[in-house]
Amino acid sequence: MQTAKQKNSSLDRVLIQIFLIGNAIIMLYPILMMALSGFKTNAEIFTRPFGMPSSFNLDNFKVIWTQTDVPRYLINSAIVTGFSVLFLLVMGTMAAYALSRYRWRGSIMVSLFFLSGLMLPLRLAIIPLFIQLKAMGLTDNPLGLIAIYTAMSLPATVFILTGFLRSLPAELEDSARIDGASELRIMVQIMTPLISPALVIAGIYNAVPIWNDFFFPLIFIQSPEWKTLAQGLTQFFGEYSINYGVLYAGLTLAALPIVVIFIAQSRRFIAGMTAGAIK
């Protein structure tokens, strides 16, 4: 009986592994092929679609680096994402701090104000937003994107950070007050460092979708000078539509930064990106 059960469970284990490995191949193979194809010439792509490239020469990548706007798109995306995350973390912390560390009349109303933002799909307000940003001179301007991303991210950020800030003991604050620290100082020197894991989670939670966003730049950025990566790729695909090696190289290059960070910090990424869905 015991042995039969054990056999059964070891068979289970093999089947599970087969299923998981199969899935892993399905997930990894396309990404691997994308990267390998980036090293191939057009001819190789047609003649040896599955094989390794004849050499790992960087010609395709050189074309992208020297002849296209992709490097600029990368920089633009980094600027927009970096500033958006900075602003949303600073403002998110401010709001969450006021909501979680003080008792005051109306705090529930203000919490609802932020929470209701979670339910408003801003994409559907794209028309008034477009008119409004145009009037404010924020179209074709990275500041416009930064402002939108900051605003969009605030509800979830406040939500995540409030939870963490609430869990900090009140005695720490009291202790700092007795030590003579001002409220600002308590927030900056004592409490905020203690939620740095939460700041990382909130940062990743927002940074990834901002970095990857395509919709808002598509509408608000026209001049190539400020196009972001995801949006710029569509431009690039139009221009190099038949040079497949270069296209694959471009995709690989565009995916590279975030993949590298993800592999180095996979646990934080997974925790961060699923933060909104796990209570």
Binding site: E171, D174, S175, A176, R177, I178, G180, A181, L194
Partner: peptide
């Protein structure tokens, strides 16, 4: 007066040491 200007010090139940 604010706590720090009353010239007193306090030891808390949880000690409230700054962890960082």
């Amino acid at each position: 007066l604010s706590p720090s200007r009353r010239g007193l010090a306090m030891v808390f139940q949880s000690y409230a040491l700054y962890p960082h």
